[in-house]
Amino acid sequence: MPAPRRVASVIRLRPEHAETYRMLHRAVPQPVLDTLSRAHVTNYSIFLREDTLFAYYEYTGEDYDADMAAIADDPQTRRWWTLTDPCQQPLDSARPGERWVTGEELFHLD
């Protein structure tokens, strides 16, 4: 089995929505979690420092683009995003339409 693909990304948290964002993530809907699992997303964590959200997950599938498209097409996940997206503000370096900006992996201790 190949090693998982490690993905890290960042986005800003709008300070006025910080408590809402925390509350939402205390009870992520099970259908959203199931969609992530079906798309081979594991070890998913989101961290907060000041107004920056840092996400990390591992991808264990074979077709990353197709699995990410399946997540984006899932109606429950799309509904979830209508709740979480207003809490977030993409970085200035984000391309048009891009929300979470993926980071470049510079180091990994295995």
Rank of each mutant, 00 (worst) to 15 (best):
D51G: 03
L109A: 14
S93Y: 06
D110S: 14
H40Q: 06
A55D: 06
R78I: 08
A3C: 08
Q30T: 12
M1K: 10
T77C: 07
E62N: 09
R14Y: 03
H25P: 02
Y56W: 13
E16Y: 05
D85E: 14
H25E: 04
L106S: 08
A94I: 10
A39S: 14
T77Y: 11
V7C: 07
Q89F: 07
A39R: 02
R78N: 10
R12D: 12
L109H: 15
D63G: 06
A3S: 14
E62M: 05
I71D: 00
S9H: 06
T102S: 09
P15A: 02
E58P: 14
A70S: 13
W100L: 07
D74Q: 06
Y56H: 13
V10T: 12
L109I: 08
W81L: 05
Q30S: 07
Y59R: 05
Y57M: 14
Q30G: 01
P15S: 01
L106E: 08
Y57C: 03
D74H: 12
G97S: 01
P90V: 07
T42S: 15
P90T: 00
Y56I: 14
P31M: 04
L33C: 04
Y56F: 11
T20A: 09
L91H: 11
T42Q: 15
S37D: 11
D51I: 02
A39G: 12
P15C: 01
L36M: 15
T84Q: 07
T82L: 03
T84S: 08
V7G: 00
W100M: 09
A3D: 14
D74W: 04
F47K: 05
A8C: 10
Q89E: 14
P4Q: 02
